[in-house]
């Protein structure tokens, strides 16, 4: 009887192991398949259109005859919005994480953590809509611009989206610093501020960098909110207070219209490859930093 029971357990063990293995393999296979599909569709563009004019072309007029698929204005649009968002989100995020991890009393810490994570749960379209009716008129008024639909509005809104990622990973990194570091610093007569600035932040630096990289990854892939509030003009941006068109918004806005198998359709997949490469690079650097931390 006992023998049978052991036998049954072995079988269950075996089946579960295979099921989990399959689940793992499937998720990897999906990534590979997606990349292959992207490559296949995106590279088809270069049969008829030169890769050089795609990567370095300065204008994006996809439905003209002949069309122009210069990705530079879109790329720069994404960069301007992302940089702006990160410049806003990182100082705020670092401050919030330090406060939550080190300064706030225990009861407040739990509430704040919950609220920051709740911020991550707000759908991006809702943030975009709120930005459109509240932030956009303010930006127009404050900077005296002809329109509030600018890279700046997008950057501010996206900063809110990057914050939860940055704060929660950074907070983890800070709490992971061994208690002995804190005790040591205080024993040497450091003030709380000196301890945070000179000991905790350097000790948690790779975690902090990882948090920033993942925040960037979150921002550069964001679509709906930027499409609603950045104005979508495919120009080369010279200032953050101008309208821009990001890569993601271009794909979203034009995919429905592009006839399958047309040059335009392939060009949108080309942008997809570019985006995929950028986010891959960012995630790769982030995991590099996380590994170094361990």
């Amino acid at each position: 009887m006992n023998f049978l029971k052991h036998r049954w357990n072995d079988i269950v063990e075996y089946v579960m192991e295979k099921v989990i293995f399959l689940a793992g393999i499937i998720s990897i296979a999906f990534v590979v398949l997606i990349f292959i599909f992207l490559l296949k569709e995106g590279l088809s563009l270069f049969k008829t259109y030169s890769p050089f004019s795609f990567l370095f072309g300065l204008s994006w007029y996809p439905i003209s005859h002949p069309p122009k698929f210069g990705v530079v204005p879109l790329f720069l649009g994404s960069i301007v919005v992302t940089l702006g968002a990160i410049l806003i989100a990182v100082p705020l995020g670092v401050g919030a994480a330090i406060y939550i991890a080190e300064v706030a009393p225990r009861w407040l810490r739990e509430i704040l953590k919950g609220l920051v994570e709740f911020l991550a749960a707000i759908p991006s379209i809702v943030l975009g809509f709120i930005g459109l009716v509240t932030l956009v008129p303010i930006v127009k008024e404050v900077f005296g611009l002809p329109t509030g639909l600018t890279a700046l509005s997008g950057a501010i809104m996206l900063a809110f989206m990057a914050m939860p990622t940055i704060v929660s990973i950074m907070e983890d990194a800070l709490t992971a610093v061994p208690e002995s570091y804190r005790a040591g610093a205080v024993a040497l007569g450091a003030t709380k501020w000196q301890m945070i600035w000179r000991v905790l932040l350097p000790a948690a630096s790779s975690g902090i960098l990882a948090a920033i990289m993942l925040g960037i990854g979150r921002v550069i892939g964001e679509t709906m909110a930027v499409m609603m509030i950045t104005g979508n003009a495919a120009r080369i941006p010279t200032s953050i207070t101008q309208p821009v068109r990001t890569m993601t918004a271009t794909i979203a806005a034009e995919m429905g219209e592009a006839v399958q198998g047309s040059e335009h359709y392939f060009a949108l997949f080309g942008i997809g490859i570019l985006l995929f490469c950028i986010t891959f690079l960012i995630n790769f650097t982030a995991s590099f930093f996380i590994k170094r931390k361990r």
Binding site: Y61, R245, A253
Partner: peptide, 28 residues
């Protein structure tokens, strides 16, 4: 003809959003 919309032209997602932007912007 090969004229194009200016690259500074804003691309708006709907009729409604154009009305919204025109009524709030003197130069639009």
């Amino acid at each position: 003809a090969t004229e194009e919309y200016s690259h500074e032209a804003l691309m708006m997602p709907s009729n409604q959003s154009i009305v919204q932007e025109v009524k709030s912007s003197e130069g639009a």
